[in-house]
Write a protein that binds this DNA or RNA. Sequence first.
DNA 1: GAGTTTGAAACT
DNA 2: CAGTTTCAAACTC
Length: 795
Amino acid sequence: MNEKHVEERKRERASTRKGRGSGVAYGAFFPLRWLFKKRGKQPLPILLLDKMDRTPEAKRIAAATSSSISSSPAVQESPFSNFLSNLSPLNTATTASYTQTLLGTNLPTPPVVFTSPHINLQRETSFLERDDIVEAGSEVYKECNTNIVQVQNPSFAEVQLCSPSGCVDEYLADPVEVDSTCSADLRSQRTNEVPRLLHSGFAPGKESNTEVCDIMFGSPENEAVLLSDQAEKDLPLSSLEMSQAAINQRDGKKTEELSRFIFEKVKESDVNACLVSRAQNCGENAAKRAGCQYDEKNASSQSRHSNERKKRVQKGLVKEGGQNERGIRRHLQFEAAKAYKFTILGNSESPCSLTHDATNSRSPSILTNLKSLASSHFDNRASSSPQDVSCDTSQFPSSPYESFTSAQIGVNSTTSAPIHSGIGLHLNRISRSTSLSSDIFSSKKSTRYLRMPEQMLEHGSNNIATNSNTMKPPCHSMLVDQEAALCEVGMSASQEADEVEELNQLSPKRKRRKDAYMSEGCKRCNCRRSKCLKLYCECFAAGVYCVDSCACVNCYNKPEFEDTVLDIRQQIEARNPLAFTPKVVDNAIDSSPNFMEEQDLTTPSSARHKRGCNCKKSKCLKRYCECFQAKVGCSSACRCEGCKNTFGVTPEPVYDRAKRWEAHPAEKLDNVKGAIACIKAPAFSSASSSNSAKISQAQLPSSQLQPSGAHYDIPYDDTPEILKETSNPTKVVKASSPNQKRVSPPQSRSRLRERSPTGLRSGRKFVLQAMPSFPPLTPHRNSKEGTNEIENDDK
DNA sequence: GAGTTTGAAACT
DNA sequence: CAGTTTCAAACTC
């Protein structure tokens, strides 16, 4: 083996010496495990590829695919699967079947992996989030019952109970009835279901029973939770996990296989949910079944849908949205696979365990969703019909709650979960219940896991054909999610609108390229040597799989290589936990006081580049500059030279952003503003002003700071201590830093802490909470005076 | 389309 | 951690 490696390495080096041009054919002549190898210190990709080829885990995953194809029918023939396939709330016979199946089993306690602490854990989630969930949930429910087309992601229970084919057809025929029927029958179904479940030995544990009861009967608390994104999938797992246990005991099947099977079922529920949502959203007649036409009525019913977006849609940019949605779905799968891996494969020792811990602790049910999504990779049934393929659950309507949650999540994820598992987490939460991409559907339909890029290309062409038949103009709700996703990947809606205008002004050649980019709505890479497994790859960096329209060579950023992708991703995240977070953060999202504190006068009001650019020659006037490309002004995080970033407009006043905290008195905000101003002052002022600022800090009563600190504590209290510490600006900028960045804040902050013993606690909290949620990877603060001067001169 | 420039990412 | 290399996008011709 070693000899073989040496030999191959020699050959590889010889090939490499030929120059970059050899990259295209690179993968054609060398074993896959060497595709990554260029240097001595890159064993991991090789190992990963090796593992991908040979490890039991990879074999198991690969086998899962084939088994899902080959053995799935056997599973489907089981009474349980038949029940699940045929379950209909309107059909009492099937319900009885359900009961009968359960009666015939003596259920043990479900395996841990399927324990469903979601409800309980949901209670443990951030109070801010939780309260919001309650409010939003009841609101959604109310609106649902009043037949407002205020679309809502049906919970799994609703899907399970209301959506199977026959019912769906009815709903498709008359979408109005969907809401009423579903919501009306739902509770009765629940109440009818639960006693049978409980009395039939369906009792894995008292706690679980309570959960089921709560869910089924819809206690006020859990009802709201049920409507939440997580709880939507809690119910299925609560049910399914127990059923799985039954099967597990009865058939002696492995938990893993069963879990996969159950996830398939969950995923199927997504498909069913899609059908329902399509009925709600898109169709008044069954002819629309095959394609979710954009419904302008529904669009107008979406309160949070911006007029800007409407205009673009009416301009015929629906296609863009559809492609955008595609990118989202890719991402969802990406993250789903990740969650699936950590949940099912028990890979809890990843270098990014913190990330996943955070994910799990914050919203374990996310993983439930993700697992269901991930299971899609191993499913071949749901894609059996073109309808299913076209029925992308990205078309899911977005409930008001969803909107709320998305925004809320944006805040929380940015502020209270400093280490992100990537934006996929955001997207999954934004467009939760989003099921499967059509391309994956189709890819899994007829093919096994593809190992070779050649196969993938061939496979991709199939996808194109499939997608061309199945991709439909998106529903309005899709656009909403897409918009959110675009924000996540660094392109806000307004920016996207600007892109549209810009597109019209480009030369034909660039317009073509740009149009291709925008039509995809997501990153399209052209990687040749990175295998799309490095951050060089825009797709990979954006946390999405590459698509067929990418021009990449030897791409491994495909669902087929999810194991590799996830491993690589973990490595990168271990190296830089923020690697997959959006580079551009919106102020509205990152409204943390730390961010407000971080901002300086060159940052525009809308967004900023999180890490800042390091431009030297482009003067931040070309798209080389990430800030410019994102159309945001350079900020204190930038280390650019001669910055002439034209987007560096006057920042939004602190108060304007602070006033978003409506729940807090204005005077507290003033105090916050004052405190922040005091902290910021040294960064923007001369030495004298810096001194005065310090004095101001000293004069700032701790009693004023305290409420502010308490105020900040709420959303950021779960910030890992390690990050808080790392955020502590103890490092001083190197002297060679072009803009002499980040000079002062440690003093001011430490002084702030020193001044008041009472303020020590609150002040400390304030300081800690005021730390950047994403610890700046660059020196903490700079004056940016040079940039300001340049900009002022230009202006 | 080929070649160059650029800056982020990766590596030493 | 600084310097270098690699990489792919952006840009120019």
